[in-house]
């Protein structure tokens, strides 16, 4: 079992992209509470994904590719 580093990098890049886009949505929510609240919740789940991806990087890679967001 060994995930090619390229696939792993793609996963990490995708998660970072999702985070950036959801963050952008939150930042530009026009003060609409429904958007702010739901994007905040999505970002919480994104952190869980990042956290688990970080473990995958540790298992599969020789170096830490990304950082879980805070």
């Amino acid at each position: 079992m060994c995930m090619p580093e390229e696939i792993l990098r793609n996963h990490v890049a995708r998660i970072k992209e999702i985070r950036a886009r959801v963050q952008e949505l939150q930042d530009n929510s026009l003060g609409i509470q429904a958007i702010e609240a739901n994007t905040r919740r999505i970002l919480a789940s994104v952190y869980m994904l990042e956290m688990n991806l970080e473990a995958l990087e540790t298992a599969e890679g020789n170096k830490m590719i990304g950082d879980a967001g805070a």
Binding site: N52, E54, A55, L56, T58, A59, M64, D67, A68, A70
Partner: peptide
Amino acid sequence: PVMETLPREKLQALQLKKFRR
């Protein structure tokens, strides 16, 4: 299964990284 079966040295590497963060 990734996190729960990480070899010890990799688990400690992850813990160290997270502790610093």
